[in-house]
Write a protein that binds this DNA or RNA. Structure first.
Length: 495
RNA sequence: GGCCCCAUCGUCUAAUGGUUCGGACAUUGCCCUUUCAAGGCGAAAAUCCGGGUUCGAUUCCCGGUGGGGUCACCA
């Protein structure tokens, strides 16, 4: 049975790279009827952020990536202030609550002779690094403590001397990683460093904690970013030292800035919540991010989360890094905006509309029509309020705007009142886009007016804007009374 | 610098020995058109370089070059 995990460090917000790692892990679990576990790796006490775990969880849930096991949001709690809970038999799923487990495993490695106490001070290590750098040597621990007498070391530890525990890497031979995306990757053992696995404060480092947890939590596929590839042999050595079978690994290509460096802040938004705040739809972001470095093979580009779960395969993930192209994300968002059922779109748009919408409006169907007016003209939900505002309140506009560029003020002064007469004569029950279009069209032809000389001033009268949806669409939404009022106002302006 | 990874249009990618190298975004021309969008039809745009293997290489091998990642008691 497949078990995957996403194991973020709660140091801030969920990064889009993290979102993709989580997404792929989620998809792999989904398609095999497997389990997707969320674990929190908070072993660095200095980099913790108070609401880090909650922030990450909120972004994940927003995107629809819901863990099956581990750290979750309590969905029965207040949606605005959700509670974090842990669920499952393999817990706790927060590493700071598992310290005894790591310490015990580190000690076991010492007994097995695969790890050793190291008493070298941070100062000595820094000096060593400096020296190596100066002599252009690879920077590595010189293994001074590796050959200390175990009994003597133990005595020093019991005597209270500060120490860390290091893994004793195999001194020679070859470590081969069989990566699901990259195939076989080989590392020469004699070039590898002895990593610290247990820090002097008793906390484990990533290497120990992730290996122990992945084993104990029965993770079958470790899916993570390519930046972990260089330390993979350390993890393989750890599995070997414990005598455990290693899981499958998949190292994902990086998501890049336009300049091809690893995606970072400073070059644009990287947090999932930034995109949420900018009015992107989660399905658009997810679809876009899924296609950064993966493609099912065909030419279709629009996939829901469920469809992705059916199609996804790690074998089709590309090896090279992918530039995060926000124009393409915009395109995805526009597509989803266009296709979404109106009722749902209104639901999502509601909080955005709030600032420009009179609180008295109750008519949901009417609000849907308002949103429908502009949905094809915006890229994000954030743009919606400014574009639909004119429906609720006619903006101030100069009379000159009513004059079509291919016509004259005089002609407008003639046409507008005549048009008004026609609209006043129209029965309220025939006030639909189609009928209006037909009647005004027929009238226009009978009068011999050009299309623009009628439609342009009508549209401006109704919208008060240079750019807007078509006049009949707007009129249908505004209704007869408001439309006539705005037209009359335009006529007054032209006097 | 050591180690590791990668390499098809500007960008995301398809094509794993035989195709005029396909699609999408962006750019651009035309059409539609009262405006802005949307839409329709076009255009321009790529196999990093050099050697092999092969009847034949985008594809396989080697070497360059280029880019990236990583070298912490951070993850």
């Amino acid at each position: 049975m497949i078990r995957t995990r996403f194991a973020p460090s709660p140091t801030g917000f969920l990064h889009v790279g993290g979102l993709r790692t989580a997404l792929y892990s989620y998809l792999v679990a989904r398609q095999g009827g497997g389990t997707f576990v969320l674990r929190i790796e908070d072993t660095d006490r200095e980099r913790q952020v108070a609401e880090g775990t909650l922030n990450i969880l909120k972004s994940l849930y927003w995107a629809g990536i819901i863990p099956d096991e581990g750290v979750k949001l309590d969905e029965t709690s207040d949606p605005d202030e959700p509670a974090v809970v842990q669920e499952g038999d393999g817990g706790p799923y927060i590493q700071s609550e598992r310290l005894a487990i790591y310490q015990e495993h580190a000690r076991r490695l010492i007994e097995l002779g695969h790890a050793y106490y190291c008493f070298c001070s941070p100062e000595r290590l820094a000096q060593l690094r400096e020296e190596q750098e100066r002599r252009k040597l690879p920077s590595r621990y010189d293994r001074r403590c590796r050959n200390l007498e175990p009994a003597a070391s133990l005595a020093r530890v019991q005597g209270g001397e500060a120490n860390v525990i290091r893994l004793a890497m195999p001194p020679e031979g070859l470590t081969t990683l069989s990566d699901l995306i990259r195939g076989e990757v080989r590392f020469e053992n004699n070039l590898l460093d002895d990593p610290v696995i247990l820090k002097s404060d008793g906390f484990p480092t990533y290497h120990l904690a992730s290996v122990v947890d992945d084993y104990l939590m029965k993770i079958t596929h470790v899916i993570r970013g390519e930046e972990w590839l260089p330390s993979a042999p350390k993890h393989l050595a750890l599995y070997a030292a414990f005598g455990w079978e290693a899981p499958q690994f998949a190292h994902l290509p990086l998501i890049l800035n336009p300049d091809k460096t690893k995606l970072s802040k400073r070059q644009g938004d990287v947090a999932v919540e930034d995109y949420r705040a900018k009015g992107y739809l989660p399905e658009a972001l997810v679809n876009f991010i899924a296609f950064l470095g993966w493609n099912p093979g065909g030419e279709r580009e629009l996939f829901t989360l469920d469809e992705l779960a059916k199609e996804f395969s790690l074998g089709k993930v590309s090896k090279g890094g992918a530039v995060f192209n926000s124009e393409k994300l915009n395109w995805y968002n526009r597509e989803y905006l266009k296709r979404m059922p109106l009722t749902e779109l209104l639901e999502r748009a509601r909080s955005w509309l709030h600032p420009v919408m009179p609180t008295t409006i109750q008519d949901e169907k009417w609000l849907e029509q308002v949103v429908a007016l502009e949905r094809e003209r915006v890229t994000t939900l954030a743009e919606l309020p400014a574009t639909v505002k004119f429906v609720f309140e006619l903006p101030e506009y100069p009379g000159e705007l009513l004059v079509w560029k291919k016509s004259t003020r005089e002609e407008m002064q003639k046409i507008l009142p005549e048009l008004n007469e026609l609209l006043v004569s129209l029965d309220d029950s025939s006030w639909t886009k189609e009928i209006l279009e037909k009647r005004v069209g027929e009238w226009r032809e009978a009068k011999g007016y050009s299309t623009g000389s009628v439609l342009w001033p009508l549209r401006v009268a109704l919208s008060g804007q240079q750019n807007s949806p078509g006049p009949f669409e707007i009129a249908a939404v505004l209704g007869p009374a408001e439309s006539r009022r705005r037209l009359q106002q335009a006529i007054d302006k032209m006097r």
